[in-house]
Write a protein that binds this DNA or RNA. Structure first.
Lengths: 199, 199
DNA sequence: GGTTAATATTGACGCTGTCAATATCCTCCA
DNA sequence: TGGAGGATATTGACAGCGTCAATATTAACC
């Protein structure tokens, strides 16, 4: 240990972000407090204010980065060539499902409007973009359908989000992992595919 | 104002519950604090402990009552005679949608596992019961389907929950209210009906 | 009527977010 | 080179929170 640590951290903003993310993963949203994050980084409890004006802006910054990560995953997947129609349309639901099940605490944060600022332009941009991708793929898959594209997109995203959220709340647990040998989420997407194919 | 209020409230438990619900409706989940509720009722900050051992148990009591209300609504609706298959199967989604859109703050509380105790036997019982109703109605409507009943039930409930939750987070707002003259939620249920009818 | 259990109050503790005042250090320009 | 000013970090304070312990008041019951 350096006996006298330098007064300036030089990289505090990033360090705070990292520490907050690690606290989030470890102990959930409520564990991410200004003071806990500062402690984690080894800095005084009021130091963070120079980089994040309050807790909300720290949590928003994390949410922004996470939304961007999800979008990048989606765009990487959709950027591949040679994807079938079904694969393309399911890229987004699958990205959300995988992310949500892999990072439950992060996923939770993304939908806590009491904690993060949904007016943040990046969040608006990213969510709009994901939505637009979804609509585009739906349009490609079923150019003429009795169902409005927006309706299909909203229904599909809602289903995915609701499933992740309720599952994390302990619902469907004993019924979620298998159905006729397939994971439940696979079966749910198949079900949705039937809607699209049936028209 | 009664100059000397009685030492005992005589009905504190119920009064606390009511005050908490009213704070919840007015200012959201975070406004429901032990101390705020006690203030509201006009009692000392530690008085509630005699009736609710901590904040969690107060919030759980509220959630229990609300879940019961929703279940009662559903069972009242399903108890009617002369309902068509479509009406029956949509009774549950519609009850959840209506409740969620009408009481956003209450709905939010119901799915906050960090605040309420999902192991509460009444909560387990009510949610199981709603789930069973849903499965039963699906079974009635499509006795033989390529889709597992549980899958359909989970998908439907997930869609409804996800829609309410995301909408309350500001998603889909500009797109939610109308589609070809019909409310979006109507269109989503129609979409789901197509899945059921198509098999 | 007096004992006991139920209920309410007061005060304390450590935690939180946030602000103001102060201290330290870095950068850049004279 | 040195000094000014801005950026960054610290300390201390304040109010609000949940919760517990000690105490006070009242109700119920024998």
């Amino acid at each position: 240990m350096p006996k006298d640590k330098p007064f300036h951290h030089r990289n505090l903003k990033e360090a705070l972000h990292d520490a907050a993310l690690s606290l989030l993963d470890a102990d959930g949203v409520s564990a991410v407090t200004i003071r806990a994050v500062a402690r984690e980084v080894g800095v005084s409890h009021a130091a963070p204010v120079n980089h994040y004006k309050d807790l909300r802006s720290l949590l928003t910054a994390i949410a922004v980065e996470q939304f961007q990560t999800i979008l990048a995953d989606i765009e990487k997947q959709l950027g591949k060539s040679g994807l079938g129609s079904a694969e393309r349309i399911e890229a987004i639901p699958e990205a959300m499902l995988n992310y949500g099940l892999k990072h439950p605490n992060r996923y939770q944060l993304l939908w806590r409007r009491d904690l993060i600022d949904y007016a943040d332009p990046v969040i608006v941009e990213v969510t709009d973009r994901i939505y637009d991708w979804l609509c585009d793929e739906i349009q490609q898959a079923i150019p003429e359908s009795e169902f409005d594209r927006d309706t299909v997109a909203i229904a599909l995203w809602s289903m995915v989000h609701g499933y992740v959220d309720m599952r994390q709340n302990g619902m469907f647990l004993e019924k979620s992992d298998n159905v006729t040998g397939l994971p439940r989420q696979r079966a749910m997407l198949d079900l949705f595919r039937a809607v699209l194919g049936a028209n």
